[in-house]
């Protein structure tokens, strides 16, 4: 995972009980046990690096967005990819799977 959980000092007064860390939260995530976590804001790789074309042939790029163990498409809330890019990304991954550049299931041998 790309995010970093850094505990910071000064617990705020309202110790609202929340379940675990929130998945895609911005700075200042969930509170647990009076400690406050500071989460780096996730950004869309394609927006930041200005990658317009998400091509099915670029299996190295696509490989970053499928899970290592099972070959599943990693959800947006984990990778931080924005909605329009995730849509194109998932299309490209499916095309790449069809032509045996990426596995449907399991890791690529």
């Amino acid at each position: 995972m790309a995010d970093e959980n850094r505990p910071t000092h000064a617990p705020s007064g309202d110790g609202g009980e929340r379940r675990g860390p929130r998945p895609g939260g911005g700075p200042g995530g969930g509170r647990e046990g009076g400690r406050k976590y500071f989460r780096r804001k996730k950004v869309c790789k394609f927006c930041v690096e200005k990658i317009d074309a998400i091509d099915y042939k670029d299996y190295r790029l696509l490989g970053q967005f499928v899970s290592i163990e099972s070959g599943k498409i990693v959800p947006r809330r984990l990778t931080g990819v924005c909605t329009p890019h995730q849509r194109r990304l998932s299309l490209a991954i499916k095309q790449a799977r069809n032509i045996a550049l990426l596995p449907f299931a399991g890791r690529a041998s």
Binding site: R97, A100, L101, P103, G106, A108, S109
Partner: peptide, 16 residues
């Protein structure tokens, strides 16, 4: 694009 290892077996081939 040359010879490449396939991500899964296709017609009993591992490369293509």
């Amino acid at each position: 694009m040359g010879k490449r290892r396939l991500a899964y077996t296709v017609r009993k081939f591992h490369d293509g």
